[in-house]
Amino acid sequence: MEMNDLLHAAVDSDASDILLVTDAPPMFRIDGQLRTTALEPLDPETIRDLCDQVMKVQQKEILEKQKDVDFAITVPRLGRFRFNIHVQRGSLAAAIRRFSNEVCTLSSLELPPVVEELTRLKTGLILVTGQTGSGKSTTLAAMVEAINQRDSKHIITLEDPIEYQFQHGKSLIEQREIGEDCPGFTSGLKHVLRQDPDVILIGELRDLDTIRVALQAAETGHLVLASLHVSSAAGVVDRLVEVFPPEEQSQVRSHLAESLRAVITQRLLPAAMSNGRVAAVEIMLTNRAIQTSIRESTTHLIPGIISTNRRVGMQTMEQALKELLLNGKVDAETVDEHLQELKGEASGKEYSHGLLA
């Protein structure tokens, strides 16, 4: 079995992901659903051979030492693929994510118009959040490409690994890969601030030091775009603050209230009338009421603030879901399922804004 054959099959099937695990056939994720291929179950030797076909010596050394390695490769005419190769039950397994050769536009993603407006900001922090596989990287890439095609800016990205590859448009774009071009997000960010950027893209806010430097960059005249694994706008604030020691949290809330410009939270849902998926998008734009909630640690009020400010482009996830249903883009069963998830999340976090009663 050849890895290239698997990648070709995934593209032909329009799969977003490939999963390789011992004693199971290769699995494809198509439109969010995991599908079994007609291939034979994989043994440890076959998976090892498939992984060896795409790993460099350095990546093999990292895998041997850490039992886990992330990297990306570009396959001509197929696109770019992100690999996570890891050890489970003593044998290798792999999760492979497929990216398009071309960066999507904001209009093709059918995101709310306010997302394009956010790309016109000069400074501040914009976060794109959601669960794994919710399209965060695609949205961030589309935002960067909107700036690239419209403005003369210096854009620097820090990614682990590089997912979409940009071509210079009106902007000059540098892409730095963690582990290849710099040792880590924190050190990369510190040096980026000395490289005259206008826009900084951080693939993921993972730890205290990265968040600290990202806030500093957003406060000192840069537009910072980043992703975070959080399922709601209110949850973003709590997550960022709680990373810091208790004695720093009050000051961090103040910095966050000043620097945070918007939170875009995404879910991908199966389309009602065709193959593919559509995005349900929650939008939080930082206004005075949001700033007060951040400073005073009353983030349970944020969903209510969002729901009453639709006229300026904000919307809750519930409002986004119901609008998709109204427009016939998703079916009622899908919306009900996600509304129940939201209700459970809200109950678990003690958010009570009256929308899901």
Rank of each mutant, 00 (worst) to 15 (best):
D5C: 00
L6V: 01
L6I: 14
A9D: 11
A10S: 14
V11H: 03
D14C: 10
A24W: 02
M27V: 13
F28H: 09
R29N: 09
I30E: 01
Q33L: 10
Q33A: 14
Q33S: 11
L34Q: 11
L34R: 08
T37Q: 06
T37Y: 12
A38Y: 03
E40F: 06
P41G: 00
P41T: 05
L42C: 08
D43N: 15
E45S: 14
T46Q: 15
T46P: 01
I47D: 01
I47H: 01
R48D: 14
D49A: 13
D49M: 12
L50C: 07
C51W: 10
Q53C: 00
K56C: 09
K56Y: 11
V57Q: 14
Q58L: 08
Q59R: 14
Q59S: 07
Q59Y: 13
K60W: 07
I62Q: 11
I62M: 07
E64C: 00
K65V: 05
K65L: 14
K65W: 00
K67N: 12
K67S: 12
V69S: 02
D70P: 04
F71A: 03
F71C: 01
A72G: 14
I73T: 07
I73G: 02
T74L: 11
V75E: 14
L78C: 01
G79M: 10
R80Q: 06
R80S: 06
R80A: 04
R82H: 04
F83G: 02
N84W: 11
I85M: 05
H86V: 01
H86L: 10
H86G: 03
V87R: 08
V87N: 03
Q88A: 05
Q88V: 12
G90E: 11
I96L: 08
R97P: 04
R97T: 10
R98D: 01
R98M: 10
F99K: 04
F99P: 03
S100L: 05
N101L: 14
L109V: 04
L109G: 04
E110H: 14
L111M: 15
P113H: 09
P113C: 02
P113A: 12
V114N: 01
V114A: 02
V114F: 01
V115Q: 08
V115T: 13
E117T: 00
E117G: 00
E117Y: 02
L118Y: 03
L118C: 07
T119Y: 07
T119R: 03
R120I: 00
R120Y: 03
T123P: 04
T123N: 15
L125F: 10
L125D: 10
I126P: 05
I126D: 02
